[in-house]
């Protein structure tokens, strides 16, 4: 097969990979914030529910979760197409890890900030949203960047439920042609470039946010 044709097939797969990332990332963010805050501040029964979600999704692997959603849930009457199953599984999985980022970042705000907010008589809602959260947000950016890269890597799993993403096409082409070394080299480089672009993006975001919030970092 001509190399140009291989490249164009792979690039189409890369678009599918990008699409999954674009859909799963917002879901993961919502889960991370939602359950992270519930884990921190919700009353007991709801808090335990959050812990169960977090521990379950962190304790088993993304592939098992993907298979469970794709193969088992249909027996309960919840049928998903492969794409939805992939986005949901990856979003929930990465989101569970994200809750720990949210929790860690909230805990990293010095206790004195809370105390100053009490002394100035802010209400508990104001303390959370005006004082603690803006500072925690800056601390969340680097670990969220790492998780976004983990998400890109994890999207390769959807190839195992027949979604024609970058990995799926690489394997299919490798089975059909003899140019396996070139194919996998291109695929690895493409994933690497994704990760680098994300890493740079998050670094820029961190710089921007920390400038807006405190001109280059926190701490006193």
């Amino acid at each position: 097969m001509p190399f140009g044709e291989i490249i164009s097939i792979l690039l189409e797969g890369a678009l599918v990979t990008l699409k999954i990332v674009a859909l799963a990332l917002p879901l993961a963010a919502v889960m991370a914030f939602g359950f992270g805050m519930l884990r921190l501040y919700a009353p007991k029964p709801i808090k335990y529910l959050a812990i169960i979600y977090i521990e379950f999704f962190r304790g088993t692997s993304a592939l098992i979760q993907l298979y469970w959603i794709y193969f088992v849930l249909p027996f309960f009457g919840f049928s998903f197409d492969a794409m939805t199953a992939g986005v949901v599984a990856l979003g929930l999985n990465i989101g569970a890890y994200g809750t720990e980022v949210v929790r860690g970042a909230m805990a990293s705000v010095p206790k004195g900030q809370y105390e100053a907010a009490v002394a100035l008589n802010f209400s508990s809602t104001q303390r959370l949203w005006r004082i603690l959260m803006p500072q925690a947000l800056v601390n969340m950016i680097p670990p969220f960047g790492n998780l976004a890269i983990e998400l890109v890597k994890a999207t390769s799993l959807v190839s195992l439920i027949t979604i024609a993403d970058l990995t799926y096409r690489a394997k299919a082409l490798a089975d059909m042609t003899l140019q396996v070394t070139e194919i996998f080299a291109v695929v690895l480089v493409l994933y690497f470039l994704f990760a680098q672009v994300l890493a740079i993006g998050f670094r820029v975001l961190e710089k921007k946010l920390s400038r807006g919030l405190g001109r280059g970092g926190l701490g006193q």
Binding site: T167, A174, V180, F184, A195
Partner: peptide
């Protein structure tokens, strides 16, 4: 950096398909 930021699954395939070459 390269090994960490590319998927394990692709690395598995890479070794599986490319090493026999």
């Amino acid at each position: 950096e390269f090994v960490r930021s590319t998927p394990l699954l692709v690395q598995i395939f890479f070794l599986y398909y490319v090493m026999p070459e």
